[in-house]
Design a protein around this nucleic acid. Structure first.
Length: 116
DNA sequence: GGAATGACATTTA
DNA sequence: CTAAATGCCATTC
């Protein structure tokens, strides 16, 4: 690859992390998804890679990265601070207790729901 | 081109 | 149920 070319943005060829952001934007308020769901939605198993993309968090304002949690229903982590993430989710209407989401399945947003 | 990292997931003890 | 170990994939140094 070129030594230094970070600005190489091919609109027709979105990077893995770019696609993750697109999916996050589809997530409605009060709903949460998992890293696994995103990875699977992209046709891969890069669960950790998805979280990695969030950690870079190039645009936390356009992407609700706080709506992404672990499959266990736990918050996982947050670049701005786990406390902030929990606060945001709570404000969105998601109930969080003991560090995990209550009725996780109820607030879980499945991307497959969009295909229909 | 290769090693190291990470906001994960799954299995086994 | 909790803890540890292993696997997996993409990005970054």
């Amino acid at each position: 690859m070129q030594t230094n070319n970070k600005q190489n943005k091919h609109l027709s060829d979105l990077s893995f992390n770019e696609q993750c952001y697109l999916l996050l934007r589809k997530i409605p308020k009060g709903r949460v998804t998992t890293y696994k769901a995103i990875a699977e939605a992209l046709g891969t198993k890069a669960y950790q890679a998805v979280g990695n993309a969030m950690n870079k968090n190039p645009n936390p304002i356009n992407v609700p990265c706080h709506r992404v949690v672990n499959t266990d229903g736990r918050l996982g982590g947050y670049a701005f601070g786990l406390e902030k993430k929990m606060a945001l989710l709570t404000k969105e209407g998601v109930v969080v207790a003991e560090g995990r989401i209550v009725d996780f399945k109820n607030v879980f947003f499945d991307f497959q729901d969009l295909s229909d």
